[in-house]
Computed example of a mutant assay.
Amino acid sequence: MGKRTVTILCSGFGLGLYIPGLLIDRRLREKGVYTEIEVFENLISQDKRDNIQKSRKAYHSNFAVALMSARMPMDIRQSIDNELADAMMKSWAKENRRDFILLSGHWLHIIDEYRTRIAPETVNAEILYVDCDLPPSWKSLQQYKPDYNQSYKEVWLYDFENTKIQYQIPIVNEEPIPILERPERFIIHGGGWGMGTYQGKIPELQEKGFELDIVLYEIQEASRKRIGDRCFMVDPSWRAWNKNERGSYEFPPLAQIIPDEEPIFENKEEYHELFDITKNTRAIIGKPGAGTLMDSLSSATPMIMLEPFGEHEKKNTRLWEKLGYGISYDTWKEKGFSMEILRELHENLVKGRKAALDYTEGYKYRNSL
C-alpha cells in the first residue's frame, strides 16, 4: 500500500493557483503529512506552454486583453497530452494515490478519468477555492455544477455571503510587524502576471513623495524608479512548471534590481520571497488576486485595491472592503492618502487573522491524517 500521500494539484498559469499549493504542501509536511505537488502545465504540449508566456506578455502590456480573456470560456481538454495524462494516472494507481486537493479547475477532467479507472468511492478529492467566486479555470467547466456534484468535497477560504474568512493558509509562523514600526513604504505590483492598472499609479504616488517597492515584469521598467524607490523582479527564465535541480517545485526566485549590478535571484524553501518585502510595508497597492489576499492577511498589511481581474476579483475587493481589510485606491485618494486609515485596516487584519482557522489543520482533521 505504501504511505498515504496527499497530492496537491496546482496550475502555473497564474501564481494565485500555484503559490497557495506550495504553501499548503509546506504546512502539511510540517504537520507530518506526506505530500506531492503536480502542476497542470506539465500535461500539455511544449508549444502550448510556450503560448502561456505569450499570453502573459500580452496581458501585462494590455489589461483590456486580459479582461476580455477572463470572459471567454475555453475547453482545456483540447490542450491535454493524453499520453502524459495516462502515464501520470498509471503512476498514481501504482502508488495507490487516493487523496487530492484541487486548486485549479483544469484538473477536474483528469480526476474524473482517474475515478473511472479505480473504485470512484475510494478517491478523496477536495476542491479548494482561494477566491470569493469561481475563477476562469472553474467557470470554463460549463458542465460542472459545484452545488450538485457530490463526488468532491468543496472548501472555500472565504464565505462571501456571510462576510467571513473561514480559513487561511499560513505563510509564516510569526506575529505581524506593527504598522507604525514599519518604514513608510508601499509595495506595488500586478500579481503573478503583472496585470492591471498599477503602472499608471506610480507617477502619482512618486509625486506625493511615497517610497515604493515596485515589482517589475520587464527589466526596462526599472527606469521609472525615483530616489527612495526599490525595484524587484522574478527571474524571467523561471517557469512554475519546471522543477529545480533537487527535483522540487519551487517558489519564484526574486532579486532586487540595482543599476549596473548583476541581479542575484534567490528563493526560500518555506515561502515566497515577496512576502518578506510585503510584511515590511504600510500597504499593498494592486489588484485583489488570491495570492495577494493571502499576503495581506498573513502579514496584516492593508490592501489599496486597483481594478480587479474578472468577477472573482470583484468579489474579493468587496469582501476586503466589508471586512475593513482594504480600501479602493480612489477612496484612499479622496481621503488624502490617509495613513490613519491604513492603521485602522491593519488593526482589523491583526484581529481577523487570529480568528481564521488554518486550512491545513482543518484538512488533517477532516481526513483523519
Rank of each mutant, 00 (worst) to 15 (best):
G228W: 09
P178T: 15
G190T: 08
Y217H: 15
G196E: 01
F309M: 15
K351H: 10
M89E: 02
E334G: 04
N242Y: 12
I127R: 02
G191M: 02
E270C: 11
S137Q: 08
E95A: 15
G196A: 06
G228Q: 08
D159Q: 11
L128S: 09
M233Q: 03
K54C: 13
H60T: 09
R366M: 08
S368D: 13
A290E: 00
E340G: 04
E262P: 05
G286V: 03
N244P: 08
V33R: 02
Y18R: 01
K335A: 04
R230Y: 10
Y144I: 04
I327G: 03
S151E: 14
E262C: 14
L128C: 14
P170M: 11
D235N: 03
S11H: 02
S296R: 06
Q46L: 15
G362P: 03
K279Y: 07
M88D: 07
A255L: 11
E311R: 12
T281G: 02
E307G: 10
S296I: 04
Q78P: 05
W241E: 07
I264R: 11
G324D: 06
P203F: 14
R27M: 09
G191Q: 03
I52N: 01
G362R: 09
T116F: 02
W92D: 03
K31N: 10
L23E: 07
I187Y: 05
S137Y: 06
W107I: 10
V155E: 04
